[in-house]
Design a protein around this nucleic acid. Structure first.
Lengths: 205, 205
DNA sequence: ACCTGAACACCGTTCAAGT
DNA sequence: ACCTGAACACCGTTCAAGT
């Protein structure tokens, strides 16, 4: 079988998940695929472009209507046109944003250095990650005046929290004495609530 | 003259400021100092420890009471004990936090990749950056229930905004056609206002 | 105490040449 | 079209040996 771009991205994601970004080198990737390094550059322009693909894979499960918190939807949701504002937009808009932000975090928190990978993709090719576009659309639909700024505000919290949690876990693994502050799921939830309070004016606290 | 740790950190900061983190290698640093690479490792344990020193230098101007927004203070501020809550703590606490966050951003925004450097220092040696401790102390004094979480919430916005602004500037320098969204000072101010609204309950909007 | 010289084990990227 | 072999120009870190 000949090498495929999908195989390259799959193996890259596997290395990232098991060993982190420091071990995800083009040479290590080639070794894992039983191939010479140069072969990778026929399927991928460079390492950054590869990371954009890996970032997309990380958030792949968030594309359809399967974010946690909403039990079942996405097949035939509404009867009218989708462009009209629903009746309870203030509260349900906030809940939808919270659900998607929590889902993005859940998809990334167990993959080492995933926050860095997403940030590279976001800066190198903005707009290429569908769930982040959906987040912005949700914020716009909920009446937020500047949805792009709000998207970045929420994502900075999501990615910053993930990086901090993973770093504190990395420290605890090396030196179990300095337990410090957990900075886990509850810290994320608290911060998300603060941001949504500021965005939506405390309506659904 | 013999080499000094201060010289090493000074030169490292100069390279970072002029050329960014990608150009701040130990070998480039040694070249700039007219010295062999190994010489650096007598003054510094490794590159990460060096970056912690560089991070401290980046925030050095924020140590005393000279943050912008508060015209003059820090000499003999109050008559009573410092542990008692002042009368207008809700509003002045919020203003103090906003001033320090804005000051931290101002100290970093013109240094390429400064957000990454601060994050490395913060994760490798938490508590070593005095202005971040002052930020947490301010939040505690203002009555925020979990000042550590709030400190990270604010700092994730500060550092995330800086990184996004520098990346969008880097893109605009290479490809001036895709102007995209500015993501500059006003985006930062707006996000900070949202966070403070959520933290302080809309009191001083 | 402080630094040199030289090595070790890596990187990302390119490219002629093969098939 | 797809891959090998080999090179180019780098990395961070260590360490005997010099002074």
């Amino acid at each position: 079988m000949t090498l495929t771009r999908d195989q390259v991205e799959d193996t890259a994601l596997a290395i990232l998940t098991r060993f982190g970004l420091a071990d995800l080198s083009m040479r290590r990737l080639a070794r894992e695929l039983d191939v010479q390094v140069g072969a990778l550059y026929w399927h991928v322009k460079n390492k950054q472009e590869l990371l954009v693909g890996v970032a997309a894979r990380l958030l792949n499960g968030l594309d359809a209507g399967n974010q946690p918190g909403c039990s079942a939807q996405g097949d035939a949701p509404s009867t009218g046109g989708p462009t009209r504002g629903a009746p309870q937009d203030q509260a349900s808009g906030r809940a939808a944003v919270a659900g998607l932000a929590t889902g993005i975090r859940a998809a990334l928190v167990n993959v080492p250095d995933s926050a860095e990978v997403i940030q590279v993709a976001q800066s190198l090719q903005p707009g290429s990650l569908a769930p982040l576009n959906r987040l912005r659309a949700m914020l716009a639909a909920a009446g937020i005046e500047n949805p792009t700024w709000a998207q970045h505000l929420v994502m900075n919290h999501v990615l910053g929290s993930i990086a901090a949690a993973q770093e504190s876990a990395r420290l605890a693994a090396v030196d179990p004495t300095a337990a410090a502050v957990p900075l886990g799921d509850d810290a994320f939830d608290w911060g998300l609530r603060v941001i949504l309070d500021g965005l939506f004016g405390d309506a659904a606290a």
